[in-house]
Design a protein around this nucleic acid. Structure first.
Lengths: 293, 293
DNA sequence: AGAAGTTGTACAAAAACTGAACGATTATCA
DNA sequence: TGATAATCGTTCAGTTTTTGTACAACTTCT
């Protein structure tokens, strides 16, 4: 299942996690974690699991959890059961949803949140699960009803995360889909990461008419509008420069945008990548460059 | 469900709530709230619940409630003149959503849940709010973007309730909408009440093809299928007896069904009323009569 | 031999804690 | 109405906790 052998030197861990070697040693002394294997001569040899844990802890700390508590939380998560990695949780989630067992899905998600930070749950548990189910549907392995149930359930889970994560300090950003789109989950994930990055995000839901996006943006002084496009048609059926003046920055993401960046430019918008996390980062840096933060 | 362990530092709480750390300490001294856990050395460790409570209290203060009263209101769930009625909460919810203040909406809903049973929150707070916003949209008083944001938000809230309410003992019922429908919220509410009535409810989300509903129903031995129809077209465009053999009992609800009960019969289904609560009751009694419970 | 690691101790900055006091409002009452 | 009392957010001083880093002396790895 997972390679738990200690192979990384402390310098490599420092490199990969950004935690200084001195700090790693202090944590081990103070909190008893991590406690890596040792070489015959006593050098620390960290495992992949240790790295993962350290990244989790670091990200909890950045979310405002006190360091000592972050470590404690991780250790308590361990005592429950073996630390199942995100990939396995994602597979369990898929299995639960395909057999329409939403209670089991609840359990998997709540365990995922106990063991991993929000970002990892979204990108490594929920997202891959959705992709696999989508693929399975295209290949006929998954029925439409199963796909519906799963995406409805996961959309709800993401929406719960979104609202759980209040906070409105930074500039305002609107998130929606292009008119006519069926898939809203990508835009929901982007909204999640933008909110996490400190923006005031209004998630308008799918399929909002562009004229309303514009008026809404004006009313709330939106600095950016992010729209998702999965189906090529929704990109192609819009007239030239249709998105041009929705807001100071207009971004289109999604598979259709990735396959046709020129199409996005034709509409007067920008393509800033397809990965939700990257997209949110890019939006942030573009807004900063433009002095719009 | 919620992680209630105290982990957040006072600085993080200050940042997230906007209440100064000195003030947080004074409140604790003066009102005895919040009383967070402590680290071994005595540092305060606030929980997620504390954060939510503080946001509630802060918003009441900004509305003019005296701080001491706001804390008291939270602790007792009471205003000076007893619990606030659902109608008032519903209006507050509408107002919050129309100005896209989802944090305020969160607070209203959380207060509603503290003061009233789930059924009342759904039927007397959320439902009327949706209806008013829908009406306002038809009359041009509410923009499409506002309507989208509100229904997206409330759909999420209902879905949260639905999944929060697990439980699968009774017979299986499927809930979806007729193909082509845009509005899924009615079906979501029905699903909620059916689950509350003790059924094992699979909510398939909107727009599931009928063939998939059928196969899904067969696989899970569904005793009933409930479909929602808001737009007359989705009712009229189906062939005769299209719903006939989806399950032992096939019910169609929604405004379009209420306006055209013969149309429902033509499809081989039954119309059992439009009010979600009644509909759920009727489904239950029909299943009992038919010996299907 | 030199780079990298280890232990143990020490240190300093940041963050929190306690308790008290201080203006500025707001409410109460003669 | 005008004086008095209560409420409330902020500030200050002095102490303690927490946390990250630094240093010295010694060891291991290559």
């Amino acid at each position: 299942m997972r390679n738990d052998l200690g192979v990384f030197t402390i310098a490599e861990v420092e490199e990969r996690t950004g935690l200084s070697s001195a700090l790693l040693r202090q944590w081990e002394r103070r909190y008893g974690f991590p406690r890596p294997e040792r070489s015959p001569g006593g050098h620390r040899l960290y495992s992949e699991t240790d790295l993962e844990a350290l990244r989790n802890i670091k990200s909890w700390i950045s979310e405002g959890v006190a360091p000592a508590q972050a470590v404690k939380r991780y250790l308590e998560g361990l005592t429950q059961e073996g630390p199942r990695p995100p990939e396995m949780l994602s597979l369990e989630l898929e299995e639960a949803l395909l057999r329409a067992d939403t209670e089991a899905a609840d359990r998997v998600l709540s365990e995922a949140h106990r063991l991993h930070p929000m970002e990892a749950v979204v990108m490594e548990v929920i997202s891959p699960c959705l992709r696999r189910i989508g693929d399975g549907w295209h290949m006929g392995r998954v029925t439409t009803a199963q796909e519906h149930l799963a995406s409805t359930y996961l959309r709800g889970a993401l929406q719960g995360l979104f609202s759980l994560m209040g906070g409105s300090l930074g500039p305002t950003v609107l998130v929606s889909t292009l008119p006519g789109e069926q898939h809203e989950i990508g835009s929901l994930i982007v909204a999640l990461f933008l909110r996490r990055a400190g923006y005031t995000v209004h998630y308008l839901g799918p399929n909002t008419p562009l004229s309303d996006v514009r008026s809404f943006g004006e009313r709330f002084g939106a600095k950016a509008v992010v729209l998702s496009a999965v189906q090529p048609i929704s990109l192609e059926s819009l007239p030239h420069q249709a998105l041009h003046n929705l807001a100071p920055l207009v971004v289109v993401g999604g598979r259709a945008a990735a396959n046709d960046p020129q199409g996005v430019e034709r509409l007067g918008a920008r393509f800033l990548g397809n990965d939700p996390r990257e997209l949110a980062d890019h939006v942030a840096s573009v807004l900063k460059e433009g002095g719009l933060w």
